[in-house]
Design a protein around this nucleic acid. Structure first.
Lengths: 230, 230
DNA sequence: TAAATAGTGTCTCTCAGACATTATCTT
DNA sequence: AAGATAATGTCTGAGAGACACTATTTA
């Protein structure tokens, strides 16, 4: 292997940036400012730059597209996509990353894209495929990966502020999974796993009921046994 | 994004071909016939060819390296690897695939590699890193993905012949996970999930004890609830 | 016969679902 | 006070670990 010809391809990194805004599971999309798919919605992304690692490229794109520092975001790889005709202009292999963020300010329409906006994931997945390239597939895979990992990791805290109540955490599960969880059983579960949550000693701002204890993510990043998702 | 320059990289597909041979969990490695890393052990792999999908490339490489038709193998993607210095000759982004196979004949040393051989996974992961490039990391990730998915999918049947006994299936779990499983509880579990196993009506060849019922993989490909792996 | 492997049955503990009850805040 | 949200407690059923016991083959 290696040695003879090294066929060349363009390598891109595309981002599925997920958040919870106003009781909805949403993804950040851009409106394409160039052909092909001019004017269509697409995932933010761009080409890998020389000397840059894949994860570095994902962080750079995230910062460019959201106008925020990528610190504090959870970013992980979803996978590689390389169907020969996935980009009409030529061979482009994309590495898809997903990023999870707590509620963010409206995106700055910076970067190369004409506009950036939050779009409810439910609408995108239910209706016809509206995204450019094979981005509907990338979105589907990323969302499924996120939903899966909620059950056995502490990924849901990525949707919450640094200090949060158990209700806020439960709401993240309910919105991403689109289910209702029993508040009592949920509390028993997440407080019962050693090291999963650490009480921050303080109490939440008033919400019209009894104030809630604030928690921070603990050292345990795996939930074992997993939170059942039927 | 897109439009201006499209920076070019070489895209490779590397394969972690896993099997169970003689009560050991093993991986197929090749001895490199060229620089860099001449003579070192590496994962089989090669460059993506024009017009070829990533999964197609993985199947092609698998067939070339094992000398067998890739039909019947389970192949799935592990992920993309793109650290800028991972290949000393230049920018190479690799997509890693893993393939699971039942016991195979000794590999034909065909293809580009000097020699191909089965190596126990345990020795590789325990000792110092002996593989070329970042292939130790690829192997680690693939093995972890395989171990994880055994617990909640029917992936273990990929290590078994088309028709197999429950003991054979259990042995696959025990070897891949390096644990002992209670035969009685294991049987209860795998026969209790509807559609997971289908009795083939026949009985196994004599092994010095009571003959066992033969099973085939059923339509259910997920194991729910999962087989606990502590 | 003994040894080996296949398969069944049972007890117990953990944990999840359902849901009643108490606690502490705002209006 | 009433209403809202937080937190605790209790009952029950599913399922996993441990392990005793029966069944069917070969040597």
């Amino acid at each position: 292997m290696f040695g003879e010809v090294m066929p060349q391809s363009a390598v891109a990194v595309d981002l599925v940036i997920l958040t919870i805004r106003g009781d909805e599971f949403q993804v950040l999309l851009v409106e394409r400012a160039k052909q092909p798919f001019l004017g269509a919605l697409a995932l933010p992304g761009g080409f890998l730059e020389p000397g840059e690692d894949l994860a570095q490229a994902a962080h750079r794109e995230l910062a460019e597209e959201t106008g925020l520092s990528a610190d504090g975001f959870h970013i992980e790889q979803v996978g590689g996509y390389g169907a020969p005709e996935r980009d009409p202009r030529g061979r482009v292999v994309s590495i898809c990353y997903m990023a999870l963020a707590p509620d963010l300010p409206a995106p700055t329409a910076g970067g190369d894209a004409r506009a950036a906006s939050w779009v409810p994931v439910g609408e995108l997945l239910a209706g016809p495929e509206r995204l450019a390239f094979d981005h509907h597939r990338l979105l589907t895979d990323a969302v499924e990966q996120a939903r899966d990992k909620l059950s056995y990791t502490n990924l849901a805290v990525s949707f919450c502020p640094p200090r949060f109540t158990i209700s806020q955490l439960r709401r993240a599960y309910e919105i991403v999974w689109d289910v209702r969880l029993d508040p009592s059983n949920f509390r028993r579960k997440v407080t019962g796993v050693p090291g999963f949550l650490v009480a921050a000693g303080d109490e939440s701002a008033p919400t019209g009921g009894r104030p809630a204890t604030l928690y921070e993510p603990g050292p345990a990043t795996r939930l074992h046994p997993a939170l059942p998702r039927d």
